[in-house]
């Protein structure tokens, strides 16, 4: 009367598999079809198959490469800046946070603001004509600085992103720093290991896994950046703040190049998959070593 283990497994996992097929499988198949077709909002139900034309068009589009370069640069710079700052702050604040853990809540406050709100807020604060910051800079210091001009806008969004997400790195590093066993520090202090040597030879190596995770998460978050930039500058002066996500959005909704937009996102997906695959394999290799 009892089913075999195998069919029992099949029955029990069936709902999950169906759910995943419906929610992930269907859009994926649709994406593959659209990326290989000439399709617009009018022809959503009757796309014309055009082979790899969309991919060729995307790869030949200098805007695509500019957007990719922008996202890559933005992701690398912000993730590194956030992690370095977060680590330094976590170590610097650790004596205070150990005594007053509630201070952490204040330090991570920027994280709870929606990135889109962040963009809107800075759009007001930094606005050339009505923004208080340029105004006071000029009135008090005589400095006339265009935060959102083509040559400065990258620095501006870099600072905004870093300000908002350094607390995230701080939070991770704070927990990693506090979870280093106290007796290891005590053993080091009896040995005479102190200060810089304690940090670089004992504490940092023990926090290395967290450093990797934090860099990875912040890199992904930076690479896919959309909302704060979109609300602050849109595609930016001369397309200077077009991230890959913004490129895809504009291609899809503004230009109606649905096939091209989806082809671009497929390329992004393939690249992300490759990176994750390699990272996961290396991570697993490390564990078994």
């Amino acid at each position: 009367m009892s089913l075999s283990q195998r069919s029992e497994n099949a029955i029990l996992t069936a709902p999950l598999v169906l759910f995943l097929l419906a929610l992930l499988g269907f859009p994926t198949v649709l994406d593959v079809i659209y990326s290989l077709s000439d399709v617009s909002f009018e022809t959503l139900r009757a796309p014309t198959f055009t082979g790899l034309d969309n991919f060729r068009a995307v790869l030949a589009d200098p805007d695509f490469w500019q957007a990719t370069w922008f996202s890559l640069k933005f992701a690398v710079l912000t993730s590194v800046a956030e992690c370095v700052l977060g680590l330094a702050l976590a170590i610097y604040f650790s004596p205070i946070l150990r005594r007053a853990p509630w201070m952490l809540a204040i330090l991570i406050m920027p994280m709870i603001i929606a990135p889109a709100m962040m963009g809107l807020m800075y759009r007001l604060v930094l606005h050339e004509f009505i923004g208080p910051l340029p105004n006071y800079l000029y009135n008090w210091f005589g400095v006339s600085y265009g935060f959102l001009t083509a040559q400065n806008v990258f620095k501006t969004i870099f600072v905004i992103e870093t300000l908002q997400w350094t607390p995230f790195a701080l939070l991770l590093f704070h927990m990693a720093y506090e979870s280093i066993p106290e007796d290891i520090r005590e053993a080091a202090s009896v040995d005479g290991t102190r200060g810089w040597r304690l940090l670089t030879r004992i504490e940092l190596p023990l926090m290395l896994p967290t450093l990797g995770v934090a860099l990875f998460i912040r890199f992904i978050d930076g690479f896919r950046v959309f909302d704060n930039i979109w609300t602050l500058t849109g595609t930016g002066p001369g397309g200077s703040t077009t991230s890959l996500s913004i490129y895809i959005y504009v291609a899809f909704f503004r230009s109606g190049e649905i096939g091209q937009a989806i082809a671009a996102s497929m390329i992004l997906f393939a690249a992300a998959f490759l990176v994750l695959f390699v990272a996961a394999r290396r991570g697993r290799g490390k564990e078994t070593a």
Partner: peptide, 28 residues
């Protein structure tokens, strides 16, 4: 502690997990 010239063996051993045995012993 380090100026007292004493060595301590901890209940949990407190070895440095990221170092080999040789590095652990030689570190100080």
């Amino acid at each position: 502690p380090h100026d007292r010239g004493l060595s301590m063996v901890f209940q949990s051993y407190a070895l440095y997990p990221h170092m080999t045995v040789r590095q652990n012993i030689a570190f100080a």
